[in-house]
C-alpha cells in the first residue's frame, strides 16, 4: 500500500503552500483523482487522517473529486468517456484508443486556509 506515503506527500505539499501564504490552519484539501492514478480512494482517506495529525492540516477535510478516463477517438474526432478502465475502446464506435486526455490526475486543486486576524 503506497497510499500512506502519498498522503504524506500530499500533506507536505499542502502544508508548504499554506505556510507560504501565512495561514494558521488548513480546513480542507480539494483533490482531483483520476481513475488511472493507481491510488485507491478509501486507502488514501485512511492515510490522510494519519498523515495530517499534528500538522497545519490536523482535523481538516479531504474532498476527493473522482475523474473518469477520457480518451480521444480518432474516428469520432472527439473526446469520449470510458465506462471502464478495462476497455480502452470508444463507447460510441468501438474503435480502440489509448490517447488518454484525462484519468491520470493525482492533483491538489485547492486548499481552504485560515488566516490570522
Amino acid at each position: 500500500m503506497h497510499e500512506l506515503s502519498i498522503a504524506y506527500s500530499l500533506v507536505e505539499m499542502a502544508g508548504e503552500s499554506a505556510r507560504e501564504a501565512g495561514a494558521v490552519r488548513v480546513r480542507a484539501v480539494h483533490l482531483r483523482l483520476g481513475a488511472l492514478s493507481g491510488v485507491v480512494r478509501g486507502a488514501l482517506e485512511f492515510g490522510y487522517e494519519i498523515a495530517t495529525a499534528d500538522t497545519l492540516l490536523a482535523e481538516s477535510r479531504l474532498h476527493v473529486k473522482e475523474l473518469p478516463v477520457r480518451v480521444y477517438c480518432g474516428v469520432c474526432r472527439k473526446e469520449v468517456e470510458l465506462k471502464s478502465v478495462q476497455r480502452f475502446r470508444c463507447p460510441e464506435c468501438d474503435t480502440p484508443s489509448g490517447d488518454i486526455r484525462q484519468g491520470r490526475e493525482l492533483e491538489i486543486e485547492s486548499i481552504e486556509i485560515e488566516m490570522p486576524e
Binding site: L106, E109, I113
Partner: peptide, 17 residues
C-alpha cells in the same frame, strides 16, 4: 477567523516527477 481558498493545481507526486 478569516478563511480563503488557495489555488494549488499541482501534482501530489510533483517532487518525484
Amino acid at each position: 477567523m478569516k478563511a480563503r481558498v488557495l489555488e494549488i493545481r499541482k501534482g501530489v507526486l510533483n517532487k518525484n516527477d
